[in-house]
Nucleic acid binder design. Sequence first.
DNA 1: TTTTAGCACTCCTTTCATTCAAGTGCTAAA
DNA 2: TTTAGCACTTGAATGAAAGGAGTGCTAAAA
Lengths: 358, 358
Amino acid sequence: MYNELSPRKQAILKAIVDAYIENGDPVGSKALTQSKQFVLSSATIRNEMAELEALGYLEQPHTSAGRIPTELGYRFYVDALMQDYALSQGELAELNSMLKAKSAEIDKLIHNAGKVMANLTNYTAIAVKQSPGRNTVTRFSLTYIDERNFLLVMVCGKRSAKTRFVHTDVPVNEEVLRMLEQVLNNFVAGKDLSTLTLPYLMQMEQCLGNYAGLISPIIKFVYEAVDKDEERDLHIDGVDKLLEYPEFMESGKLKDMLGMFDRKDELFELFDEEGDDVTICIGREKGVEAMAGSSLVFKKIVVGGKTVGAVGVIGPCRMDYSKVVSAIRYLSDGIASAFLPGSGQLTPPSAPDEPNKH
Amino acid sequence: MYNELSPRKQAILKAIVDAYIENGDPVGSKALTQSKQFVLSSATIRNEMAELEALGYLEQPHTSAGRIPTELGYRFYVDALMQDYALSQGELAELNSMLKAKSAEIDKLIHNAGKVMANLTNYTAIAVKQSPGRNTVTRFSLTYIDERNFLLVMVCGKRSAKTRFVHTDVPVNEEVLRMLEQVLNNFVAGKDLSTLTLPYLMQMEQCLGNYAGLISPIIKFVYEAVDKDEERDLHIDGVDKLLEYPEFMESGKLKDMLGMFDRKDELFELFDEEGDDVTICIGREKGVEAMAGSSLVFKKIVVGGKTVGAVGVIGPCRMDYSKVVSAIRYLSDGIASAFLPGSGQLTPPSAPDEPNKH
DNA sequence: TTTTAGCACTCCTTTCATTCAAGTGCTAAA
DNA sequence: TTTAGCACTTGAATGAAAGGAGTGCTAAAA
């Protein structure tokens, strides 16, 4: 589909997108000839631009304005035309200093990554933290509080734990809790939830005699704890950056965005993507109406084969994709390797030696 | 200070604030006479308004506009003039249906309260969840995971628990953990942290022999868990509601707000208030520059003498205080009584029988 | 002494016409 | 195939004019 574009058309498209990303004004044929990168007259470029528009890569806000890229134009740009951006020394320093403070939990690191991203790119950043879906509880532990209350601790995998306070109508004591704990560890720990059939549960209840009534509320908690959506968490940073881009100042765009930021479920869906490298969603490509005019760039954070979260930025379609992509890739990989067991040192994904001045 | 205002001035001030809150246009003398609540000519009212302005309760955007309240004007209004708003049946139903879904943790309830508040009042809502400061850990529980890892569970009070994964250099087993657990429960549980002096810690370490090295990282976690700031959490809902008020559309107000929403620390400070009833912060009263033109109304949620959070709304100074106050009071008290042990039924703070049409 | 009618004045908002500049498409020539 | 030239379109910027809302002040009325 793309090969219908001659090299010259591609060069012109690239120049237009680059220029438009940089200053936000529709770019006309004259501006391109003045930029000295083409030895063509404005008329020739005009013809090419007219064809690019007919092909759907460009559009005109109105008759007497220059051209701006369409969603298709941006798509082609990020897929085929965009150049790699090498992070500057200062930018690398900023990212690294964040990554080195890896003392804390991965949650905090991801959260901080959002703040850093927002600052570095000057777009709104989204940091997603998600525990791997479809857990099983690997171990139970019950802690006595008083006759009617105890704490249920569920260890999921080796890296996360959830607690619930359980109130009982039957009085309990340490001994009962030990027994219950043992039953849970024998019957439920490590099992997939689908194996918890009714007869199976009844078997457990038999083991507990008078305390059989405790099982069903606990199982409810287990379901809740294991439920995939339960453990997703999403932080948005630098919302005020949106205001720096005129595309959000008019019409209802800003409202759309802020509304979407409130409906986190909808946001999560945007992050459901197969790819493992940086994903770029331009405008309504994913079918989300509120994304019209905006783009989302993100990358999953994968530690030891498990997706533990993602980090991304959201901003106008007219976004500095090449810089954003570089920053996100660096940060996402950096977080991942900071948490890879054993690896203390970061391994930057690319060797940036010559910083771009942008 | 306030008694310098004659009853008539108060009535006029009230009428002005009411009218301005309702439609956002500066209110002139003519509008007041037309409202039929005064049997005075516009000239008389003009004189009164001029005096109210001289006293600092009103101001004029420009010479040929009506008057709008100053921060002092709003202050007087909320302190002395504002009428109680009786929530309508529909509004009560909305609030109650939220409160009845009390299955979940108090965290979730508070979070939901924010969403409901935002919808009901049409202002941005803030839901604060804070565990009572300066906890002690009341009980420890250790769960074996593998030779080098175990889970540390710290129960604080009877209502909250925190977990930490601990990695050890010394191999451990169930037995060791039991011993360690006992030591922690004997020496640390229920103690104020200030009693954990160095000699005291050394005494503990003696009890543990080879495993003395485990104590210090655990104590570090205890400090973290007990640290006051650790457990504050804040959710903002309905940010897009800001856009419905023209005061945020111009100048940098919106940016100020969004910026403040990002700096949660600053927000938390606004919620540090002594009072137990609804608190109203008008504009820069609390010394926060970003609050210029905006007001915050909130109320702590107090369960059994402990502050567990707060719920509030933030919006333009021109806010429907009376409705907001009623809603917040109802919700805050509702959450509190939903979580008061034993009390299944809600006890509404006031008996609303005749809904206001507003 | 207080209230009110009357009036000149201020200042914002809206409207309309005009001008200006940028950029285009098209045609014809190179 | 490219380019110069030109007529045309359109939004943005400017400024004058009109309109309106509201005020303060003065003097008369209650």
